[in-house]
Amino acid sequence: MKSLSVNWFIEGSLDFEFKKYQLLGYLQQINQHFNKTKLYPDLNDLIFHYNNLLKFKENKTALQKAFPERLTNADIEAVKLTYEKMVKDDSLMLEIEHIISYSLRKMDPALKEGREIYEFVESRLRIEPIGVIPLYPYHGYLLLRNGDERSTNVYEYQVTIFENHDEKYRGINTTFVASFERNFINTPEAIRKELIHVRREVPNPAVYHVETDIKFPLEQTLLPLAKRSLVKHISTAA
């Protein structure tokens, strides 16, 4: 996908028309993907850039604290140096503010559409535990059925906990294991038994079945949302 650099709005030529062209090309591609119900990685990227603009507008020195996973020391220094130059040049300050205000207005509709798609897909997901869930449900298998597709994809998952400043977050890593044909034999319960029998390295796994009645793009939409929903489900139940 066409991507914007972290500091795209203050890099290179600070000409409004050039930045407008750059932004509209980026948003055009995102909208094309959203029209096909393809959310990722576009939605995460769009949210990052939107928040990045807001943070720059509100407090230019707060970026490192807000986005440590995306901003390098070089990025932070670029922001600080540009800000120092901005406050000494009224015309440059006005041009930057013009670019930021325009960009935020243009990003708003795309963000709204992305969130609506997210909520719609999430509303079509159904999560069900298969068998007895162990006391430690953070490692196991995700069985994923995508609408009327004739297969069930199996992923081994591992929920991880990481800290960011004063808060704890949960993430999830998945690895594709196998695909089972959908029939009266390969029920979720039968797949669970097969996994336990064949994959002895996970002797007492948690197994969750996630399905949707509508087919969605697997890698760009369904799998990412299934993972997020599973983390939420496990966190609520634990």
Rank of each mutant, 00 (worst) to 15 (best):
D45H: 11
I185W: 08
I76R: 02
D42H: 14
S123W: 07
E119Q: 15
Q32G: 10
R228T: 12
E69K: 11
E189R: 07
D45Y: 01
V121G: 03
V198G: 00
I214Q: 08
T221W: 09
T72Q: 10
G114Q: 05
R150Q: 13
L24D: 14
K106T: 04
A190K: 07
L4C: 07
R200M: 03
E211D: 09
N52C: 14
K193S: 14
V87K: 14
L195N: 02
D75E: 09
Y118G: 00
I234C: 03
I100R: 03
M1H: 12
L92K: 12
N44C: 01
K193I: 04
P129M: 05
I185V: 15
K106E: 15
Y157T: 09
H49K: 06
V87Q: 13
D148I: 09
T72M: 08
L230Q: 02
P134N: 08
H233R: 06
V154T: 05
I127K: 03
L81F: 08
Q220M: 09
S229H: 03
Y169S: 07
S103D: 08
Q220V: 00
L218W: 07
N59S: 15
F56P: 01
D166M: 08
N164P: 00
M107H: 02
I100M: 06
V231F: 01
R200I: 09
L223H: 04
L142D: 01
S235L: 13
V207N: 03
P134T: 06
F162P: 08
N73Y: 12
I185A: 09
T37A: 10
D42K: 05
I10S: 03
T221P: 06
D75M: 10
N164E: 15
N153T: 12
Y21V: 12
A66Q: 13
I117R: 07
Q29H: 12
E95Y: 01
P41F: 13
K85Y: 06
F176Y: 14
T152I: 15
L81N: 13
V198A: 00
D42C: 09
R70S: 13
A237K: 14
F56E: 05
Q29G: 08
H209N: 14
S229R: 10
E181A: 13
T61Q: 12
L125Q: 05
D45G: 07
I172Y: 03
F176T: 01
L43I: 13
E77K: 13
E113G: 00
R200K: 15
H233V: 04
N153C: 11
T72D: 11
P41Q: 11
T174L: 06
K112N: 04
A238C: 07
D108T: 14
E11F: 04
I30E: 02
T72N: 07
T152H: 01
A190L: 03
I10G: 03
V79L: 10
D166I: 10
E69M: 06
E167S: 12
N173P: 03
R105F: 01
K193N: 15
I47G: 00
F180D: 05
Y141W: 11
L222I: 08
V6E: 03
N153Q: 14
I76V: 15
V121D: 02
D75W: 10
P205W: 02
K112T: 13
V159H: 01
P129Y: 11
N52W: 04
V198P: 00
K112I: 14
Y157P: 03
V202Q: 02
N51T: 00
H139R: 11
I191G: 05
E163H: 11
L225W: 02
L111S: 06
T174P: 06
V87S: 03
V6K: 13
L53C: 12
G25A: 04
L143R: 02
